[in-house]
Nucleic acid binder design. Structure first.
Lengths: 406, 406
DNA sequence: AGGTGTGTGGAAAGCGCTTTCCGGCACCGT
DNA sequence: ACGGTGCCGGAAAGCGCTTTCCACACACCT
């Protein structure tokens, strides 16, 4: 790996000048960090004096042309040796070895930005979430990360910080980053300038990107759809079958599509079985832990002295956990005083007691599938109709909703 | 937004040729996605026939020179109008308006990659985690995302997928991406080729990047350090004060530094108070939920018939929750049969009953601080000694460790 | 008028990379 | 000996952008 070059060599091949002003700093730096060798230093341009020179510190990394010079080959050959194999352009073994050795010796690393510009494509996919600390999004992102890793892609995380209206802005950002694909995890909100989001997504797709929406489909885009309505209906039927007759719903924001579908599915099931949900027992609130807490308190307030509700369905587990906390604070026992069910089967449910009845959604897998779908669609040159993959869900009964003695 | 241009106009200003082979596809696409206008299409190069042409589809987005042409100004002016203000180079208001209008009309969006190459710096920071679905990392990343958002930076998420040895690889990847800074959240492992990680980090720093390590300091790099030893010691003293005398430790992997410091701190506190931890009551296991479960079962197995342990300290909350689950399965009640404490105070603790005694670590803030530190260090041109910010932690007593009647 | 600023647009070089075309070379059959 | 045929290295153009230097126009002051 070490060839016959003089160890103190300072890249005469490159013909570049060293910074004089910057030299002390750069040597100091190199000394401090050690191990890095002569190639790590500050470079200045501008010896030509012609227009176009960049007399500021532009880069501190070894470039491919330096590697090429060190290996005594041309830039083209160096590029081919390192990333080549494109077409039938083979670099002979000995040259390739020389280049690889030089690259290693100089600690060269490809500049992914430059590569992206030259190749016209990046190696990053973007993922939009509302709050990465929420276990729902965390699980989805874990799946995205797994699939991206398998495909040797980077993940760019864009978070709205719980402001749904920022989704469009983040999509624009990812377009600017030329992300290969965007996986949109945030729940769809009807009030959050949907036109703006659609516009941003269309522009992104028009620029050659692929979009996959997770949760519910969005007109015109590929989607991995969770069967919210069906799952909630199945849960409703199951609870009815267990003997529950006076349900209440902690329903999430009115404009939140996922929340709405779950509420509608659940309500429809009870209605069909002859025990419609009392409208006064449907409380809307934020799609969060504290939203669930608040909605539960509001519900209890509406009930007054006597609780005329036997089961509470929170449209997601995080809200259900909020409700559980609120119930505890109120001195109400679940399931003795009140049964409780959620939706999603987030991982942290394994640690709550009593076990929470819910609808299992394979979140991590969904994240991975969405990513794989995006990558597959990218390959499909033909412009096809949006692919919508429906994910079935499954009711999981736990202790929070025991069969009700009649 | 709609100006007087002929709708069928095909950018004569640009002088570029349209693809003939690709035209049907591109028109079809533009038709399908609507709203995008004539500027979104496939472009081919190669009308010159000279070397250097790129006859493949290179990009589908509007470029700045097209905007410049549409606005009737030069490339330089267009660039200055959109991002300018660098130095005292002002673009007069009317020209600036023309450029902005043209950009909007063409749905132009800057190519962040090209910008990064030209400017020599990106706008992304990298964050390395072991598992984003783990609430510990999720909270930290939420903080990183918040701070990055405030600084108008992108977050590139790199996950080892629970393989600590992959940290070095991911750092190399982030170096390749020319991330402005790397925030290393993964716990330090002694066995995971530390030299390789250190080497990768040094090369990254040598290339102009900034590194901040979270958790415990790593020689030579900035860090936001959690007072693991002190926190665990304080917890130990507190529990001793409550009357516990026969502690056990679910200690995490031997080589895991955070785990080790917490174990040592806790053990030291009990030793100082005259009740050293029995070595046979220290069980090592993975730093995860199932690791906690397994370690707890192992501990119970070692105890045999009679449980001669009065409090179990798990070196993190996730393990403590695993232990709690295992205890439930075994029919043991916490705290009646056994007290339990953890470390970190992850958010999901709010939903477990009994409330788990732990050591509060402001995880999300730490993520944000680490990011802010990285950005501050980037500005400080002077090469200074590594900054290590110590974060104090606080014992939080909950129901899982009631005062023990003597 | 003739200098001297001052402001502002444009030409063009440069970032670091990929990929094309060309041309040189070795090998082969005739 | 000669043209054909592969193979493979190099020169150079190009990606889309930023920033420099130059040039020109217009004051302003003597």
């Amino acid at each position: 790996m070490v060839d016959g070059m003089a160890p103190a060599q300072t890249w005469p091949e490159t013909g570049r000048s060293w910074s004089s002003a910057g030299a002390p700093l750069s040597y100091g730096l190199a000394g401090l960090i050690g191990l890095v060798g002569p190639s790590v230093r500050e470079r200045r341009f501008g010896e030509t004096g012609r227009p176009g020179r960049l007399p500021y510190i532009a880069a501190m990394s070894v470039t491919l042309s330096e590697v090429a010079a060190a290996a005594g080959v041309s830039l083209a050959t160096a590029s081919r040796a390192l990333h080549g194999a494109s077409g039938r352009r083979q670099v002979k073994a000995d040259l390739k070895q020389r280049v690889l050795a030089a690259a290693e010796r100089l600690n060269y690393t490809t500049d992914a930005m430059a590569q992206a510009v030259a190749r016209g494509r990046t190696s990053a996919i973007g993922v939009v979430v509302h709050d990465i600390a929420d276990p729902y999004f965390a699980a989805l992102v874990a799946g995205v990360a797994r699939a991206a890793d398998a495909a040797a892609l980077q993940v760019t995380l864009a978070s709205t910080q719980n402001e749904p209206a920022r989704e469009a802005e983040l999509v624009r950002l990812l377009r600017q980053q030329r992300a290969r694909a965007v996986v949109l995890l945030g729940g769809r909100h009807e009030d959050a300038k949907p036109a703006e989001l659609g516009q941003a997504l269309r522009l992104y797709v028009g620029g050659g990107g692929t979009v996959v929406v997770v949760g519910q489909p969005l007109a015109g885009f590929d989607a991995v759809a969770i069967d919210n309505r069906g799952g909630a209906a199945a849960l409703g039927r199951t609870l009815h079958g267990l003997g529950y007759r006076r349900p209440a719903i902690l329903a999430g924001p009115l404009a939140h599509l996922t929340a709405r579908h779950r509420r509608e599915g659940f309500a429809a099931a009870f209605a069909e079985l002859g025990d419609p949900v009392d409208q006064a027992r449907i409380v809307h609130g934020a799609f969060t832990h504290s939203g669930g807490e608040a909605a539960f308190l509001e519900l209890m307030g509406r009930c007054g002295e006597r609780i005329d509700v036997d089961v509470v369905f929170a449209v997601n587990d995080v809200m259900a956990l909020g409700a559980l906390a609120a119930a505890r604070d109120l001195g109400l026992a679940v399931p003795d005083d009140l049964a409780l069910a959620g939706f999603d089967d987030i991982t942290s449910l394994r640690d709550v007691a009593p076990g929470l009845t819910t609808v299992h959604v394979p979140l991590e897998d969904i994240g991975a599938w969405a990513t794989e779908l995006a990558l597959a669609e990218e390959l499909a040159e033909e412009e096809s109709d949006p692919v919508v993959r429906q994910i079935p869900v499954q009711v999981v009964l736990r202790q929070s909703t025991p069969a009700r003695p009649r």
